[in-house]
Amino acid sequence: MATLKINGESKVFEATEDTPLLWVLRDVLGLTGTKFGCGIAQCGACTVHVDGKPVRSCLLPVGGIGDRAITTIEGIGATPAGASVQKAWLDLEVIQCGYCQSGQIMAAAALLAATPHPDDADIDAAMAGNICRCGTYVRIRDAIKRAAAARAA
């Protein structure tokens, strides 16, 4: 039996130490908002936060997490940065097919929490690992700037 702190709650589950967190989230705990994309940390769809930092859950072994706090797309709206990102996403209708968007939102929320006023270079550095096949990149960039502005206001 293992325990992880996910979205503020203690979750108890059964999994071997080398199981990637994504498997536990989706298959064991039913938190299916986090998506499986490539499985090799190259697309960003599985991004969650570990102690506020964006991490690819498809490669993160649950045995190495310890008592660090995990936040998933289901819980990100409870954080100030996450709430403003979600609102900006809706305002600008960023999403097309949506598959990558939980990862995009998680990456954007982590960026804004660490860098409240990101410039284009900051957005590139933080978001380059999150791929969108629909090509919503322009709206993603606008929404990040809008969320930043809304938080500053």
Binding site: L59, L60, D124, A128, G129
Partner: peptide
């Protein structure tokens, strides 16, 4: 070099070089 690092490497190796995934 930086652009490739940002897209393909930073998610595991971090900008600091200290991996958030595994030592």
């Amino acid at each position: 070099g930086k652009r490739i690092f940002a897209g393909a490497c930073a998610s595991c190796h971090d900008w600091s070089g200290v991996s958030p995934i595994t030592e």
